[in-house]
Design a protein around this nucleic acid. Structure first.
Lengths: 341, 341
DNA sequence: CTGAAAGCGCTTACAG
DNA sequence: CTGAAAGCGCTTACAG
């Protein structure tokens, strides 16, 4: 199918292709008159610049890569929708790159993508945002990147996050206010830096309230439903001392814990309160609906894409990298209630 | 960052760039000796062909576009993972393009993508796979496309599907075997062609079993959790005659129906059986676990990408378009049981 | 089986 | 404010 090129536009508008290029790219220094003539020709011919040619000739590819490695579909989808929303407004496109960060070929995948496609920027979501190999490779190549919810070493790159600690503190406070004293905590995936912070928030508030954190009440999950189920078993199986509430580092594991409780005849929240983290769509779906923390995932991804496209990723003169902090929100539903007795 | 080009490789291997191009693209007609010399140089320099240059000079962009408009994250993610799996093997990349097919600018989005990025092929998933405007525009441009689960007009394009009718028949049979006679059916999104077929399968088996399909037992949903909730209300509110089982056109609505049942003290499956369609991750998560149909979504997307990359989308001499049929599977869990009384 | 050369559709110094 | 021209890194007839 024949498509209008920059030459066709130039001819129709009676200018050189240079001028067309300036207009199409929104550069200043073109007279109003000329600009209008060009825009008219563009519209009439339905001209759209060829990305490959642009990328080859110029410094931009108009492509943003999104690397993700997160087993939760709702998270992945929300990130993507947010990033695409921004890309659309700016005429960029999004390359979806699922990464298995457990595999060593993260390195090769990334090298491939960078040298072959030359994206203008990269968004890294957990667990990739804490992946040393990935960051090293990207930095060596010099492509700008912004991390979403980095777990550590924040100064290393531009990033967008919410206060994981604050959110965990808020939830813990909520449980304590309901009268819970023995609270079990289900940790997230060990490589997910942000979930260490969630644990920290939990611990801080417990200690501030004068409540000891029993090591038996701290169990290691991996964000999966199954691990939530298993952790609940560990927490609830010791009859002598069992928690009256479980705070899980994400919703998926909270659902697993809930499923365990159901199977063993515990009713929620009268026997056991359960709280999650994420506000995934299933949080509203389960029975009873889950008390959780709303993460502004869509907005975080949107902000990340924006920083990239605006070129706002370099450190300022004092060496500080740009970052954006978005707000979380405690969502109280029916899965948490007053402590029994 | 300086990167090796085809000239660097040619120089190092002592051949012309033409030869390098042939080798890199796996063309025949290069002597074993030359081929090896080139491959060695490629490896030593870490050469990776630039996609923009390739796309501009040649006929291929090595890009596949995935258009989707489906509110269910697990569906979207599965499709994407399947498509990416195939793309990776073949050195293609996936452009993620969420489409709001209710909006009229579907047309412009697609035109933009096609003329600007020149993808080598397009995958359409519901509801885009039944979108007339989208198909017209793509056909006008001449880009190969394959539809996943097209609802109608199958001959129009290459496609991959599973037997929606057969799956619905199987599920309906399952319910009848459990003794259910009054079965409510929750229809899917009206623009989702495949869900018309699910209704057809349901109707067929009901009639074959000599059971009338009460029009009051057919309610219109839109695939959302909320609509499932509302439909359950409609079905269960008439006290005189209420179904003993509900067959929902997707899992999400089945979960909504389940939530309604819970809120109104109906226990599942002893008072009411509920069946879904999809086998989404939440089907295992809810309580009780949901009886459903497993759709091979990942595999369907993988097959679609494969057809595109293999160039197997044109009609054969007799005019038949290629298509692939994958198998569904009935997954019986605890949400369906013997009919009450 | 392999070379030399044109050309894909842009951007961007270099002039004016 | 605008032109003429080089060049980005490939593919692909055209020759041999």
């Amino acid at each position: 199918v024949p498509v209008a090129t920059i030459f066709d536009v130039a001819e129709r508008a009676g200018v050189s292709i240079k001028t067309v290029s300036l207009v199409v790219n929104g550069q200043p220094n073109v007279s109003m008159k000329t600009r209008e003539r060009v825009m008219k020709a563009v519209a009439e011919l339905g001209y759209r610049p060829n990305y490959s040619a642009r990328s080859l000739a110029g410094a931009r590819s108009f492509l943003i890569g999104l690397f993700y490695d997160n087993p939760i579909p709702s998270y992945v989808t929300a990130v993507q929708m947010g990033a695409v929303a921004c890309c659309r407004r700016r005429n960029y496109h999004l390359l979806a790159e699922p990464i298995d960060s457990s595999i060593e070929d993260v390195d090769m995948h990334i090298a491939n993508l960078l040298t072959a496609l030359r994206p203008d920027g990269l968004i890294l979501t957990p667990l990739v945002s804490d992946n040393e190999i990935a960051m090293k490779r990207i930095e060596a190549f010099g492509t700008p990147y912004v991390r979403i919810a980095p777990g550590a070493d924040r100064a290393r790159s531009a990033h967008v996050l919410m206060s994981e600690i604050g959110a965990a503190e808020t939830m813990t406070q909520h449980l304590i206010e309901l009268g819970h004293r023995k609270i079990g905590f289900v940790k997230g995936h060990p490589q997910h830096g942000a979930s260490h912070q969630r644990l920290e928030g939990f611990t801080r508030v417990m200690q501030a309230a004068g409540l000891s954190v029993d090591p038996d009440f701290l169990v290691q999950g991996d964000f999966s439903f199954q691990s939530g189920f298993d952790c609940a078993e560990k927490l609830l199986t010791a009859k002598s001392k069992r928690p009256t509430a479980i705070f899980s580092s994400n919703d998926e594991m909270a659902l697993g814990a809930m499923s365990y409780a159901h199977r063993h005849g515990l009713s929620i929240p009268s026997d056991l309160s359960i709280a999650g983290f994420d506000d995934s769509p299933s949080a509203k779906v389960v029975w009873p609906p889950l008390t959780t923390i709303r993460q502004p995932i869509f907005e975080m991804a949107e902000a990340a894409a924006e920083m990239l496209i605006d070129g706002k990723t370099d450190p300022d003169p004092t060496g500080v990298r740009p970052f954006r902090v978005l707000d979380f929100q405690l969502i109280v539903r029916d899965s948490t209630g007053p402590a029994p007795r």
